[in-house]
Every structure is written in structure tokens, then in C-alpha cells.
């Protein structure tokens, strides 16, 4: 079949019907943008790191996809994968915490809400922590605290930069005060990392709130954010209820934080890897250069002056 025939045949076939379209969305072939409604071929959307090519809406991505997006292939070495959450308070709300944990573990194939590891970003070895919102809203309990603290300590020991992708509703209530104390634990590990003059960059993604905002999300030497991410300490609804007033749409967005001075730059996901690699490279201690050679002083010729 020649190319011309192919075009001719294609013109003959009817446009994709509503029914077929819906079937293909259901099959995952196409994805309809949550924001602009435009249909994108799912493969293309994934190739664009789950950023809508039409409106730049940033879809939520799993921690595993983040590793693929940021880390050079074949260089990822995960840390402390065996850490498992437990139920220290024997907590039970409408459902036992134990059951919730099991359900999320089955659904996400993760042990808890963070993955940590060492990998290369454009050849720069870095310690990376990635929170996963799909596991109980990225909430921070003992496992999240312990894995991040260990990863930061490892970076301090090996003289590496730390990058943490934040995505969290805050502390995990089901582990009570143990969760709250993880904020201090991680901040303590970051204090030692900082004292060693090492670079830490949190990436704030949608959403970064509560105890995560009030600890490691805001402790970066540099703080980057994805566009339109919700970032805040107190929940928007809580503030609206307390103050009995409607808040503007841009309240607690990355853009709002940028204008108030709490974010260094908003970086689209498609540029994140290159930006991080560049920043890590720029913070490498200067290489010892060749000894400075002073040239002979050049005698000033009278006539050349003013």
C-alpha cells in the first residue's frame, strides 16, 4: 500500500464516533485532560511526563514514574525497601489502620508513602526521596520519617546532595504523636546535612501541606515547585471556616508562594531533570585549577595615557 492509498483509505473511514472514543478512553488508549478536556494519546501524555501538551496541566504521577523521569537509566539503587509500617496505637476510626495499610499496599505495590534511593541525574550522583500521594495521601508516619532520615544521613556521610519530591497531606494521624515527631527527626537530619555544607532541594508538588510544609518542604537551600501546586500549612477549608470568608483562587498556589518569597522558582516537570542536574553541578566545590601564573608587569608607555 502506497502512502497515497493510506491517506485515501483513511479519508474513507468515518470519524471516530462518540462510542468508540469512550471505549478507547476506558481502555486507557486516550486520556482526557482533567483541566482542559482535550484528548491526548496516553502514550504521548506519558512521553510528556504526564503534562498535558495542550494546557500544561500536571497530572499526579506515581513515585516509580518519578524515578524514571529523573534518574539516569540503570543507576537507581533503592534504600531501605524492606521498611514496613506497623500499627503502634492500634488505631481504629471507621476502619482499622491495619486494614487501611493492607489495602493501600495492595493498591500501590508500595510499603508506605515514600521511596528513597541513590541515583544519577545526568551523571550527578544524588540522594532522592519521592513521596507518593497515592499511598494514604502521602501522609507521614514512622516509615516515611525513618526512610527520609536514613537517606539524608547517608547523603551527609557520602557528601551528596539531597532532593525530596514532596507530595503529602501532612502527618499521618493514625500513628498519632509518633507521626508529629517525624517532622523533628527529619529536620534534625537536615541540620547535620546542612552543617556539612551540602545541598538540599525539596520539590513541592501538588499538594504539599501540613506537617510536611512545616518541616522538610520549607527547609531547602533552594526550593522548587511544580506549576499550580497547592502548598500550604493550614488547609484552605480550615481557614475558610475559621475566618468565614471565601479565599481567592490563587491562595496557597505555587505562584502565590513565589510572589511571597517562599519558593525560588517554578519549574515545569518537563524541565525538572535538566534544572536539577544543572543546580547540583553548580554547587559542586570548585575543582582545583592550575596554579595561577602572574604575567610580567607590562610597562606603561607614556604616550598611551589618556
Amino acid at each position: 500500500m502506497s502512502l497515497f492509498d493510506w491517506f485515501a483509505n483513511r479519508r474513507k473511514s468515518p470519524p471516530i464516533g462518540q462510542e468508540q472514543q469512550e471505549r478507547e478512553i476506558a481502555e486507557g488508549l486516550w486520556t482526557k485532560c482533567e483541566q482542559c478536556g482535550v484528548l491526548t494519546y496516553t502514550k504521548d501524555l506519558r512521553a510528556n511526563q504526564m503534562v498535558c501538551p495542550e494546557c500544561e496541566y500536571h497530572w499526579r504521577v506515581f513515585s516509580g514514574d518519578r524515578i524514571e523521569q529523573l534518574i539516569d537509566p540503570g543507576t537507581w539503587q533503592s534504600l531501605d525497601e524492606g521498611l514496613q509500617p506497623t500499627d503502634p496505637l492500634e488505631f481504629r476510626d471507621r476502619k482499622p489502620y491495619r486494614d487501611r495499610l493492607r489495602e493501600y499496599q495492595e493498591k500501590t505495590h508500595l510499603n508506605d508513602a515514600v521511596q528513597t534511593g541513590i541515583g544519577q541525574i545526568d551523571g550527578e550522583p544524588t540522594v532522592l526521596g519521592i513521596m507518593d500521594f497515592s499511598f494514604m495521601g502521602g501522609s507521614m508516619g514512622s516509615v516515611v520519617g525513618e526512610k527520609l532520615a536514613r537517606a539524608i544521613e547517608r547523603a551527609t556521610k557520602e557528601g551528596l546532595s539531597v532532593i525530596i519530591i514532596c507530595a503529602s497531606g501532612g502527618a499521618r494521624m493514625q500513628e498519632g504523636m509518633l507521626s508529629l515527631m517525624q517532622m523533628a527527626k527529619i529536620s534534625g537530619a537536615l541540620q547535620r546535612h546542612r552543617a556539612a555544607n551540602l545541598l538540599y532541594i525539596p520539590i513541592l508538588t501538588h499538594p504539599t501541606t501540613g506537617g510536611v510544609t512545616a518541616s522538610f518542604a520549607m527547609l531547602g537551600d533552594l526550593i522548587l515547585s511544580e506549576p499550580k501546586a497547592t502548598i500550604g500549612f493550614a488547609g484552605r477549608r480550615v481557614i475558610e471556616q475559621t475566618l468565614r470568608q471565601k479565599l481567592p483562587d490563587n491562595f496557597q498556589t505555587a505562584e502565590d508562594l513565589l510572589t511571597h518569597g517562599f519558593v525560588d522558582a517554578i519549574v515545569p516537570r518537563t524541565e525538572l531533570k535538566a534544572t536539577l542536574a544543572q543546580l547540583v553541578r553548580w554547587h559542586q566545590p570548585p575543582q582545583p585549577s592550575a596554579p595561577l601564573v602572574l604575567s610580567e608587569p607590562v610597562p606603561v608607555v607614556e604616550g598611551e595615557r589618556g
Binding site: 531501605d80 524492606g82 521498611l83 514496613q84 509500617p85 506497623t86 503502634p88 508516619g141 514512622s142 516509615v143 520519617g145 525513618e146 532520615a149 500513628e175 509518633l178 515527631m181 517525624q182 523533628a184 527527626k185 534534625g188 537530619a189
Partner: peptide, 10 residues
């Protein structure tokens, strides 16, 4: 603070 938290390992 480093020792606060409960989890299972392996």
C-alpha cells in the same frame, strides 16, 4: 528524636 517511630524491618 532519631529514635522516635515504630516500624518493621525485613
Amino acid at each position: 528524636f532519631r529514635h522516635i517511630g515504630m516500624f518493621l524491618e525485613g
